[in-house]
Each structure stands twice: as structure tokens, then as C-alpha cells.
Design a binder for these strands. Structure first.
Ligand code: MN
Ligand code: MN
Ligand code: MN
Ligand code: MN
Lengths: 223, 223
DNA sequence: TTTTATTTTTAGACAAGACTAAACAATAAC
DNA sequence: GTTATTGTTTAGTCTTGTCTAAAAATAAAA
């Protein structure tokens, strides 16, 4: 049942999954090429291969979508990626801005037992260091209560950071400088109409965040 | 300075290292092919590539040897392999017979920081689960006091197991059944001339080990 | 020292995964 | 409803790593 995939194939599957989650529709060749940092012609080749293995449903000129099997495969890789990221931060003292590239390598290690033992060792974490949900052995991911972007909160509202919409090292280090992390409590004190920036209170201090920043911070409303 | 190698290249380097450690001489194409489970012609191709990168010294029909740089490279990979094996046994509760194949994958993960943090997390272990020495950051490996194979001990002598000459899962599981592990203390009670087997005492019990088995257990003499 | 056997290398082919350049579909603009 | 633009696929080439079959070098035997 479990088909053997190359690292390249796994990466394509992950990319298709991410894109089709984003816009609820079939995925185009060019956007896949952009995401995979390759050329459209290479994508076409790979899509055909994965279609052969019935992980992707594909019709010429009509884009592609993952099959049920394809989705299961994507979730396995995502599970491994996020477990390793958690391991690196929790156990090996890495910063949350340093772990993605290493996890990109580790996610391809083939051993179900390894994945499950790692999961147990980490105490079955539900979220990775960036607040993204970790699929369990069956591929299930916890569905969260309604969340907001920080720029959707009104003045006076309080939120707890539960994720970031941008996991780039640059943005994560920016958040570090403001001591913003998963779990950090933030209150909106002021919204400046002229540039849509916000004065926010974190850990008792009040600072200003640009619109670009508040659009990338996911929170859950407090009480 | 640090050249980027493919997994395949790293595996060849490791194999050359192992073979040239064994018989103190240059390594032949056929034995390398056997070890890598491939064909001699493939080996010739790869040797040329690695020779280009000056990791191997090579002369047609004369076999090959690692350069200084090649040895450093081999030791880096071996370090990673043995650290991961230690991690799997110590932290993830794997048996010593289950870790080699997974470590064969993990040893290719590229991140010096990962390796060093893992080393620290494991408390800078000097030996892996099979008793093999783990090179440190500089590639140095601890040199041990004189060791013997179990079949070299005279009657009455006591030894502590410090390694195995065969790390196959089959042999390791055999040792498990007799509760023989790294650190186990063994005393020779009797040597049977007719088949060269031995009666040995472990943990108070006396059992019989074949010549094939005693040749594969490395010990240090006790007192 | 020839002959024979073994080891090693070359030549040629193949699959995976990528690329460029060119052809072909599907949309959008006029 | 043609024309232009964009998106997608094909055709042909390249590199890595492998293979088989055949040639060449070395080592062993006679
Ligand atoms: Mn990541
Ligand atoms: Mn993540
Ligand atoms: Mn091993
Ligand atoms: Mn080992």
C-alpha cells in the first residue's frame, strides 16, 4: 500500500497540498513551478509521474489536485516536518527561526516507528513551534476555535498569539525582538488610520506594529 | 572549504574509509563494489568523481585511498551516524538491532549545528550503542586500551564487553537473548576443544557460546 | 615466458529530474 | 470573431548514478 516516493516527489505533493488548501481549487502548473522554484516544464513531467502513481488527479491544461491517497501522503510528510521542528526547538534549543530548513531534510526520513517514537518522546504535541497543527498517526489535525489576524481586532480587544502567517526567519526574528511568541498575550491600544499601524501592549510594554506585521500574526480572542 | 556531497558520494567515502581501516592498504574496485552492493564499473565512475574533488587519491588499476580531506569527510559522516544511533537507543527507546538503517538515512542531514547540539543533548557520548567510538567535532576518536576477542581469553579470565565485530540485527538479537550487552561482564569457565565453543558465565548463569559467536564479541580484560 | 585467469576500465545505454526553446491551448482584448 | 496574451505542454538536451558487454591491464599458472 505505502508507495515509495523520492524526496522530490514528496516535496511536490506537499506543495500541491499547501496550494490547494489555500485557494479551494485545482492547482496550476505555473504557481506550482513558482512554489517549487523550478520551471513549468519540470512540473508537467512530475505531475504526470505522480498522476501515474495516482497520488494526483490531472487533466491536461486543467491543473491538478491531490487524490485521497495523495492527501494522506502529504499529511505524513507534514507530520514529520512539524514533529522534527518541535524536537529541534524543544530538545535541541534551536530558535523557531532556524528549524525549517533542517526539517525540510528530516521530513524525508523513512521510518514509521521513528516518527511515532519521536511523537511519544515529545509527548504528542498538537502544534509545532510556529503554531501549525501536527497531524497524528491517522492524519487527523485538531480543528481550532475561530481565530483572527491581529489587524482584525478592535481597540481594547485582547488576543493570544496562536500562529504566524509568515514563517520566514526574517519575520520570526522580528517577533523575537518584540518578545512575541506562541502564547503571548497582546492587547490593541490604538489604531492609527493614516498607515493602519497599531499600538499594542505586550508584557506590560506598549509598542507600535506596522500593518504588514499585524496581518501576519494569528490570535485567538481572549474571553 | 566544506564541499557539498551527495548521499551517494558520502556513502562511498564511508565505505572506502572502512575498507582502508581494515586492511592497511589501498582499496580495490571490486571489494568496494561488493561493499556498496553495486557494479565495478559504477565504482570506477564514482572514484573518478571523488578523485576530481580530491577526496580520494586514485591511479588507474592501482586502487584508491582517501586523502586527508577525504578522511575528515568520512569521520564527519561516521560521527553523525553514531550520534543518531545513540539518540535512537537512549532517547527513543529503540533496540540496538533496529537503529543502523535509520542512521544510514539520518547521517546525511546537513547541519553542523544540528550535529553539535545533538552531541550536547546526548551529553557528548564517547561510544555508540554498538561500542564504536564517536568522533568529536574535530574528528578525534578516543583510543582505547588493549582489547581482545572473547575467544582469545584463557579459562578463568574475566572480560567486560566493549563492542561487537558484527552489528547485524541477527547477531545483536542473539546477544539480547543471552542478555549480553555493552558493559556486560563475562567469565570463561570452559573451552571445548572439539568445536572450540566456550562455557561462559554471565549474570551468574552459565551458558555455551559457539566459536562463531565468541569471535564477534570484543572485551577488555578485567583486573 | 607464454598462456590463462582475474581485476579493472571503457563504451554505450538507461531512468530520474532538471533545463531551454518552441509549439500549442485557453483567455482576454479589441 | 479575430488578434494578442498568458498558461501549459512537448521536444530535445544535460547531469547523476546506475547498468551490461566488451576491451585492456595486471596477476597467476604453466
Ligand atoms: Mn517548516
Ligand atoms: Mn512549522
Ligand atoms: Mn550503524
Ligand atoms: Mn553503530
Amino acid at each position: 500500500m505505502a508507495i515509495l516516493l523520492t524526496q522530490s516527489e514528496e516535496n511536490y505533493i506537499k506543495a500541491v497540498y499547501a496550494l490547494q488548501q489555500h485557494h479551494q481549487a485545482s492547482v496550476g502548473t505555473n504557481e506550482l513551478a513558482e512554489r517549487m522554484d523550478t520551471k513549468a516544464s519540470s512540473v508537467t513531467d512530475m505531475i504526470k509521474r505522480l498522476s501515474e502513481k495516482s497520488l494526483i488527479q490531472y487533466e491536461k491544461y486543467k491543473g491538478c489536485e491531490l487524490t485521497e491517497e495523495g492527501i494522506r501522503t502529504a499529511l505524513k510528510t507534514i507530520r514529520k516536518h512539524r514533529l522534527w521542528e518541535t524536537f529541534l526547538v524543544e530538545k535541541l534549543k534551536f530558535g523557531w527561526d532556524e528549524v525549517h530548513d533542517i526539517a525540510e531534510q528530516l521530513e524525508h526520513i523513512q521510518s514509521v516507528k521513528l516518527t511515532d517514537q519521536l511523537d511519544a518522546f515529545l509527548n504528542y504535541p498538537k502544534f509545532d513551534p510556529h503554531g501549525d497543527p501536527i497531524p497524528d498517526q491517522t492524519g487527523a489535525i485538531v480543528q481550532r476555535d475561530q481565530s483572527f489576524l491581529l489587524n482584525e481586532l478592535e481597540i481594547g480587544a485582547e488576543g493570544v498569539v496562536i500562529g504566524v502567517a509568515d514563517s520566514s526567519a526574517s519575520f520570526l526574528r522580528f517577533l523575537d525582538r518584540y518578545k512575541i511568541n506562541i502564547g503571548t498575550c497582546i492587547q490593541i491600544k490604538e489604531i492609527y488610520a493614516f498607515d493602519d499601524s497599531r499600538a499594542i501592549e505586550i508584557h506590560g510594554e506598549t509598542v507600535n506594529l506596522s500593518a504588514a506585521a499585524t496581518q501576519k500574526i494569528t490570535v485567538q480572542k481572549q474571553q
